[in-house]
Design a protein around this nucleic acid. Sequence first.
DNA 1: AACGCGTTCAACCGCAGGAGA
DNA 2: TTCTCCTGCGGTTGAACGCGT
Length: 215
Amino acid sequence: MEGRNEYKKGLWTEEEDRILMDYIRVHGKGKWNRIAKMSGLKRGGKSCRLRWINYLSPSVKRGGFSEEEEDLIIRLHNLLGNRWSLIAGRVPGRTDNQVKNHWNTHLSKKLGIKNGKTKVSVSTQSFSRESVANCIVHSESNPEILTSSCNGESTVETIIEDKSHAVFSFTSTQEAVTMDDNNSSYWFFNDDLSFAPYLVEPIDEYALDFVWDSL
DNA sequence: AACGCGTTCAACCGCAGGAGA
DNA sequence: TTCTCCTGCGGTTGAACGCGT
């Protein structure tokens, strides 16, 4: 069993990398536990898989993140929250681990975000299609989250005419972050000084595709 | 040179969910 | 249906590194 001390832990050596790459070159990836056993590596399957995905795979881009990549990650994080694998899937050559690390060590500081959230104040606003595209899909599937997240100090009116149009009106000042224990995260992000509301969760692949097209 | 401290990032862990026997 | 194995995810850890003193 993995978890007992029969497997080596810690940083990989060049020799271990070579063994793993040679094995994958011949036999292909997948069945990681078998790779670990059959290649002779003293590594668990999960460790092999992670090493390949995050480092050895030729599709992994090394080096620092470009401004374009950072901008992309920031926008995707607005939409998705800490859904690192989904975000990484839209940033060519970057893995979820790379994106997560870069966010935690650079971008969250750059944006002044604490614990993955930020706060901005929003006064009476209306939003149209471009800025709330992600809310359209989500609000149709979970309309109760919109209303429950925005009661109290402010109210929100949601008008959904069809999948391509929605307007949100806030009738009083909204202190940005509303976070409860039911994943009904709702927050506002200062995106180029145009206050756009974003539902953080849940958003699925379909919703992301929909939003993606409108970015 | 050496020590302390903060930062970075590769790797690990626990968990959830899917596939198949 | 249940069990086991495998894969993938997000949070966390800790070794390595860089920098200031």
